[in-house]
């Protein structure tokens, strides 16, 4: 990557509140260029919220999100995100990628090459002219990845990209993520699948009920986390003794 990175990303005492509920509680962390960062934690821990805060889709109620390398540039232009339920535009697979590239002001002749490449690498080459909305869920997830790949982001956020996917589809997605990481894209990803975290993580952030309880190297974390709740989580225990507030269906947290 020739342009200087917008990383490191720093969160300073970031809190997020909605309907008088504190969903993220005074979170401070520094995320550096390089290692693949995997955020784990039980459902409702605030993982998805944290990603969207970092990506700039929502603003913190308190605290600051800082991109120290941005140097006056718009950090959003160097990031991309794969949503848990990516929205496909009602047009062809290729046109979906073309749309994203056009938003980044990539000239048309270059776009063709980038689209072909991205489709090739996600195994969607044969689907270029198929309407995106008729793809299966797994294929749509690959298209979401292809769409971000074509953008060559410095930082890629992924929000549970393989939730509800079968092992084969999960494997394809994980391979693509690793390939993007090898090409220099910083990966920041949430999952509640511990196996996946072990396979992909260089460093781990453990989130529970809106608090960052541990931030450690993957090897050290999986060998034995310092935090008691993290240890329980790794053992596969239900964190039942913590009072959990149920969120009504349909609300996004």
């Amino acid at each position: 990557m020739t342009t200087p990175s917008i990383l490191p990303l720093e969160l300073r005492a970031v809190s997020f509140e909605r309907d008088r509920q504190r969903l993220l509680k005074s979170l401070s962390v520094r995320i550096a260029e390089g290692p693949r960062t995997i955020i784990i934690g039980p459902n409702g821990a605030g993982k998805s919220l944290l990603l969207r805060l970092c990506h700039g889709l929502i603003a913190p109620s308190e605290g600051e999100v800082l991109w120290h390398g941005a140097q006056g540039r718009d950090p959003l232009r160097f990031q991309a995100m794969v949503m848990q339920r990516p929205v496909m535009l009602r047009r062809s697979v290729a046109a979906n990628i073309d749309f994203a590239l056009s938003l980044h002001r990539i000239p048309r002749p270059q776009r063709r090459r980038l689209i072909a490449e991205a489709l090739e690498r996600t195994g969607l080459g044969a689907f270029a002219r198929v309407p995106a909305r008729v793809l299966s869920f797994g294929e749509q997830q690959r298209l979401a990845l292809a769409r971000t790949w074509a953008l060559r982001p410095q930082v890629l956020f992924l929000d549970e990209p393989t939730a509800n996917l079968d092992p084969a589809a999960t494997h394809v997605i994980e391979d693509a993520i690793l390939a993007m990481a090898r090409e220099g894209t910083k990966i920041i990803m949430t999952t509640h699948d511990l196996g996946q975290a072990r396979r992909l993580a260089d460093e781990v952030m453990f989130l529970h009920r809106g608090r960052l309880l541990e931030h450690a190297e993957a090897a050290a974390f999986f060998a034995g986390p310092e935090n008691e709740l993290a240890r329980a989580f790794l053992r596969g225990e239900l964190l039942w003794w913590e009072r959990r507030e149920l969120t009504p269906p349909g609300t996004r947290v």
Binding site: R52, L57, L76, M81, M83, V87, A100, L103, H104, R147
Partner: peptide, 16 residues
């Protein structure tokens, strides 16, 4: 309500 975050994430201006 369905598209907002996706479009903003892709960097769409309001016009686009």
């Amino acid at each position: 309500s369905e598209y907002e975050e996706q479009l903003r994430s892709l960097g769409a201006t309001p016009r686009r």
